[in-house]
């Protein structure tokens, strides 16, 4: 197997798996579209990275941090609904990015390009994905409890604000690394679709969260292998595979 394909597969499996696992929490907290919106918020950073030739994830991260702080700040100041503010910030980000994003890089920014990935990028993606996965696994039951009843969680000594912050940082990290795989336009699906499929067939939290992880990793692996043999872009293939698995899950849906 050629080395480049091997690196792509490793990154896809680790980032896709962790994104799936994260998605199982995001759907539960009715935050399914946040991944999508943040993918767009990252776009100016992605554009800069593509122009100056560094890893898009490093371009995405500061933009995500800035975007999240801005949304939080605007919400405090205006008390407008979070989703309206997120809408303003993410569309403004897309608009800014398109002022300087070179035309030749549009497709890479929007649907990703995992074919040019080196050893150090692979290494960093794997380490960070593993780290985020372990953190999420650790806070998983507390996050579900917060979602069921914030007050109950508080009384049970769950530090709600701290957990929400950790969770948000995990989302930002996974969006930044997922953009490398599926681009900013499709990043949202990498979080939502595997988790939605798993939710259809799972009987309990364990099956749900690890089912999401497996479907996320599997979609990435199959998508990347198809990209190699068909020559079509990997990002869209990955998302279509995940969507196909979602359709199959509907057939086996548990009442």
């Amino acid at each position: 197997m050629d080395l480049q394909l091997f690196y792509s597969l490793i990154v896809g499996i680790f980032v896709g798996g962790t994104a799936g696992f994260l998605g199982s929490l995001m759907i539960t907290k009715r935050m399914a579209l946040v991944g999508d919106a943040l993918g767009h918020v990252a776009l100016p950073g992605v554009a800069l990275a593509l122009i100056y030739g560094f890893n898009v994830s490093w371009g995405a991260l500061p933009c995500l941090a800035l975007g999240i702080v801005l949304i939080w700040f605007l919400e405090m100041k205006t008390k407008l609904p979070m989703e309206a503010l997120t809408g303003i910030v993410f569309t403004a980000s897309v608009a800014i990015a398109f002022l300087f994003l070179p035309e030749s890089e549009v497709s890479t920014a929007l649907v990703g390009d995992i074919s040019q990935i080196n050893l150090s990028d692979t290494f960093i993606s794997v380490i960070l994905s593993l780290m985020v996965f372990l953190i999420l696994r650790n806070i998983f039951s507390q996050m579900i409890l917060i979602n069921l009843s914030e007050e109950l969680a508080y009384v049970e000594h769950v530090e709600v604000k701290k957990y929400n912050l950790i969770y948000l940082i995990c989302i930002a990290l996974i969006v930044a690394f997922g953009i490398k795989v599926t681009g900013s336009l499709l990043m949202g699906a990498l979080v939502i679709t595997p988790a939605a499929a798993a939710r259809n067939i799972a009987r309990n939290l364990f099956q749900y969260s690890y089912g999401s992880l497996i479907i996320g990793a599997l979609s990435c692996a199959i998508g990347i292998l198809l990209f190699k043999s068909l020559g079509l872009p990997a990002g869209p293939l990955i998302i279509l595979i995940a969507s196909f698995i979602f359709l199959i899950s509907l057939v086996f849906r548990k009442k």
Partner: peptide
């Protein structure tokens, strides 16, 4: 009703 959380969990 769509949250897969068992009584035991």
């Amino acid at each position: 009703s769509t949250l897969p959380l068992s009584v035991k969990e």
